[in-house]
Design a binder for these strands. Structure first.
Lengths: 84, 84, 84, 84
DNA sequence: CGCTTAATATAGCCAC
DNA sequence: GTGGCTATATTAAGCG
């Protein structure tokens, strides 16, 4: 066989550790998702249009992505032109 | 008119506040997503099978969900049978 | 230029064709949704509990899905254990 | 008791019939969903932008809905004005 | 009719 | 770098 009891136990501990760390991070992630929902619920309670708010957030996120891509391309051009 | 400059300004502030809070929470969420990825990358570096690890995490999560669903269905049955 | 009047006309015809085919299929889909609703309405008229019926259908569908998932997981395990 | 073996058997047959009819209709619905997907895949293979096509279909669907709503409102107005 | 769940559409990721 | 797959975000439906 290619392994023994000791290395299997090590792998088992390692697996357990990884799974638990991921599960904790996912739990925190779910909490944030819930908090985001709460913000929208509260906003709705204040008379705001949630769908429109979501659209605004999505647009700004998109803008951010495109700005970052533009900067990346600019950096590439600068590097290519020896300007960096 | 149904609004005036003051209430519009208030709405504007409210909208701005909501959008910023959501964006901050989404930023934190993205950080967590990145951290989860890092855990898997590290696990891979330690010789673990990432796909299998993801399956384990998913199965455990699924078990939790199914346990909750089973309770819900049990309640439904109880209600249908007049046991509630 | 990368296109000309002819290829644009072809694309236009293609687009029109695709949109129409999708719209026809969606129309048929909506008809089916309506027919399903009618079945439940009729069942209700015959004294059946629609919510319970929906639960039965959902459970049977879920069983099918879970059986398929179980096979997928089994395959994954076989692969992980070098049994495939 | 409010039922007997015969009426229970009738209800059972009725339930079975309803469930099967719904399942058949849902199967047809799923087939249509798959066919729609295939149309888009084929369109993609022909160099079309699937996201844009979906947007077109959605816009036209929206137009239809809004036109129907407009007609409904128009009918209401006509009735109110004794024009129907 | 609103509010909670289910269906659909989109986006990100991984492997090939 | 493309295509399938998973996860997420949006939309629609059902229920009270």
């Amino acid at each position: 066989m290619s392994t023994n009891a000791t290395s299997e136990a090590v792998a088992s501990d390692l697996i357990k550790s990884v799974v638990e760390r991921v599960e904790n991070l996912e739990r925190e992630k779910r909490d944030l998702v819930d908090q985001i929902k709460e913000v929208f619920v509260e906003a709705k309670g204040n008379g705001l249009d949630v769908k429109a708010l979501r659209a605004v957030v999505a647009l700004r996120r998109q803008d951010t992505v495109e700005r970052q891509e533009a900067e990346t391309i600019l950096d590439l051009y600068k590097t290519a032109l020896g300007m960096s």
